[in-house]
Structure formats: structure tokens, C-alpha cells
């Protein structure tokens, strides 16, 4: 840890442990039992680390080339990975072995467990795999490639891509609703009350559909492409990145239209990720310069309450653990680090 990390004398949070790999860490998730972290590396390695010590519990060469997507089933011990070798693999973390391997024609760039169903997109096609199936099922095929998909209301699947956001019935996969926007929608999330569907677009906008009032809204004026967005779990605020700024929008009734957002920054370098704590109190921002900043705008305004990270080590994956006690990061330089959440009296 460098002292230069902190020119403004903000309290420094030091890592509890550092784990070293030989390859960039491209993915990092918390295992279902909350006792370990699962990392995907740029050479195709899947590594399970003990959350308390950082020691490696299990490691396997999941793919012959880099990992493209990694998703953990929240209801079981299954982990899905896709790789540059065009394969999708499902791993059982208890049995420490692959339980399904399927080779596609090209890269599978996105895979997510939605309940016990695994959905994955390969270019313009979206597939589904359920326990007992030996082969995945094609769910839908679009004219343009699919960028992102999330579960809505546990009953609908929301899918976005170029010019389109569509909602499908999760059981029948019939299309319930489609919204259009002439631009590439590449990152999708819903407000926790599922009233707002929010998409980041390649054209430096965020596009919002108010599903309750059947209105749409475009947020413009970002200085750079919005790479990440995240709702506070109570749904009252949403944070997004835009270059070296973090913008916080007020989603309290009637919504964010015509309200002035809070802007954090500009920071020294572009921000890669924004993540609210699960209890909603603290926002963490993760910069491409390796700096992690912790924010409590309600108490500290636009000044960070604590700083962590390793200067000049690009952060490529980040999370809060579900118990809110730790922040974990994966770095382009091969480190995995665990930091305690900064303590603060409300």
C-alpha cells in the first residue's frame, strides 16, 4: 500500500489479505455459502479462495483460454463459466468437478443463473439450461446481439440489446412487452421496486422506462460512456459511472426527472464500478487507477469517508460480500484483495 494513495489524508483501509495469481482477474463472485470467493482468470483458471484467509481451496483449469463470464447459483453449489474456448461449463463446488460441458460455435459472452435456470447469450441468441438437460435450449433469437439480461419480478426475463428492451414470461418465454430506443443498450438493471427499467446506452445516455406510468426518459449530458450503474437496495437512489465522475440520482417519487443529481468527482481516473452496500448505507467506487473510495453522501457530502486499494493496479472485478463486512477486488495485475468495510457511527 502506498502513502501516495491518499493525498487528502482520508482514512486508509488496509487489505486483510492479498492473494496473488499469475493472470489478470477477470471475474470475482462470492460463493453461495458466503465462506469463499470464486475468481475467474484470464488464462481460464477458476479459483476458489477462503474468504477469511485468502487461501486457495480449489483451483481448476476451467477453460483452455480466458474466462468470459462467471455466475454463481444462489440456491446451490453450482458455478457456471464460459470461456474463449467457446465452451460453457457448470461446476459443482462440493464435488469439485464439472457437471456439464457444452461447446458452442463462438463466444458465449454472458451467462447468469436466474433461480435454478442458467441463461446465456451467444451473439444474437439466448439459451436456457435447466438441471437434467444435456443440451441447452434456444430461447430467443434477435436481429442484433443481446447485451444483457436480468430477472424481473421472479416471473419475467428482461433482455436488452441494440434498439430494444424486451420482457419475456419466464415460463413460456412469450414476449410480454418491448420498448425501443435507437441506440445500443448494453447494461440493464431494474429499480428494486421494479418500477423503473434502466439501460446504459452506447450514445452516452441512460434510458429509463417508467413501467408504472408507461413513460420513458433519457438522461443526457454525461461526459463519458456510462460503464456501470447500481441501485441502492431501497431503490431511492441509483449511482452510475461516467468517466471519472460518479452521479447519484434521486429515484424517490415521482422519479429522477427534473431533479439535480449529486456528482462525486471528477476523480483522478475513470471509475469502473459502483456498488452500494447491501444495507444501502455506503457506496463504494472502484477506479481504473486501483483506488477504492467509500462514500456516505448523507453524512460526508461529496467527500469520501475512506480510501483503499493499490495505486496503479487496474480494478477489473469488485463486490461487497453479502454480510456487508468486506469489499473484495480482482485486479488486472493478478491480485485479489479483501478489505474490511470502514466503520462509521451513524
Amino acid at each position: 500500500m502506498s502513502t501516495e494513495l491518499n493525498p487528502q489524508q482520508i482514512p486508509i483501509i488496509r487489505p486483510l489479505w492479498l492473494s496473488v495469481t499469475t493472470e489478470p482477474v477477470t471475474h470475482l463472485e462470492e460463493a453461495q455459502n458466503g465462506e469463499s470467493l470464486i475468481a475467474g482468470l484470464a488464462d481460464g483458471t477458476l479459483r476458489q479462495l477462503d474468504l477469511k484467509s485468502g487461501e486457495t481451496i480449489f483451483e481448476t483449469s476451467a477453460h483452455s483460454m480466458g474466462i468470459l463470464a462467471l455466475s454463481i447459483n444462489s440456491e446451490s453449489n453450482l458455478v457456471a463459466t464460459t470461456g474463449e474456448d467457446n465452451k460453457i461449463q457448470i461446476w459443482d463446488l462440493i464435488k469439485k468437478k464439472s457437471v456439464l460441458s457444452y461447446k458452442a460455435k463462438s463466444w458465449i459472452e454472458n451467462a447468469k443463473w436466474l433461480g435454478n435456470k442458467l441463461f446465456f447469450s451467444q451473439g444474437k441468441n439466448l439459451f436456457k439450461w435447466e438441471s437434467g438437460q444435456t443440451e441447452p435450449t434456444l430461447v430467443t433469437s434477435w436481429e442484433h446481439s443481446i447485451s444483457d439480461f436480468v430477472l424481473k419480478n421472479n416471473s419475467e426475463l428482461a433482455v436488452c440489446g441494440y434498439s430494444r428492451l424486451s420482457l419475456y414470461d419466464l415460463d413460456t418465454m412469450e414476449e410480454n412487452q418491448t420498448f425501443n430506443w435507437k441506440g445500443q443498450l448494453f447494461k440493464l438493471c431494474f429499480s428494486p421496486n421494479e418500477r423503473f427499467a434502466v439501460c446504459a446506452s452506447n450514445d452516452l445516455t441512460i434510458h429509463i422506462w417508467d413501467l408504472k406510468r408507461n413513460k420513458d426518459l433519457t438522461m443526457r449530458g454525461f461526459v463519458a460512456k456510462v460503464r456501470d450503474l447500481h441501485f441502492r437496495p431501497d431503490g431511492l437512489y441509483m449511482a452510475n459511472t461516467s468517466g471519472s465522475e460518479v452521479i447519484i440520482w434521486d429515484y424517490m417519487e415521482p422519479g429522477p426527472a427534473n431533479k439535480k443529481p449529486t456528482v462525486l468527482g471528477p476523480l483522478e481516473k475513470d471509475v469502473q464500478f459502483v456498488r452500494y452496500q447491501h444495507n444501502g448505507k455506503t457506496l463504494a467506487t472502484f477506479g481504473e487507477d486501483g483506488v477504492i473510495l467509500f462514500w456516505r453522501p448523507d453524512l460526508f457530502g461529496e467527500k469520501p469517508l475512506a480510501i483503499a486499494g493499490i495505486r496503479d493496479q487496474e480494478i477489473s472485478a469488485a463486490l461487497w460480500t453479502r454480510n456487508d463486512q468486506f469489499v473484495a477486488t480482482g485486479l488486472q495485475t493478478g491480485y485479489i484483495a479483501l478489505y474490511p468495510t470502514p466503520e462509521i457511527k451513524d
Partner: peptide
């Protein structure tokens, strides 16, 4: 080397 297969997908930018 990394070899990636891809279908050409052309779209208009909203600019």
C-alpha cells in the same frame, strides 16, 4: 493466438 468467430453486425449510431 486468440481466434474469435463473429457474425458481422452493423448498426447505426444514434449520434
Amino acid at each position: 493466438h486468440i481466434v474469435v468467430n463473429s457474425d458481422e453486425e452493423i448498426f447505426e449510431m444514434n449520434n
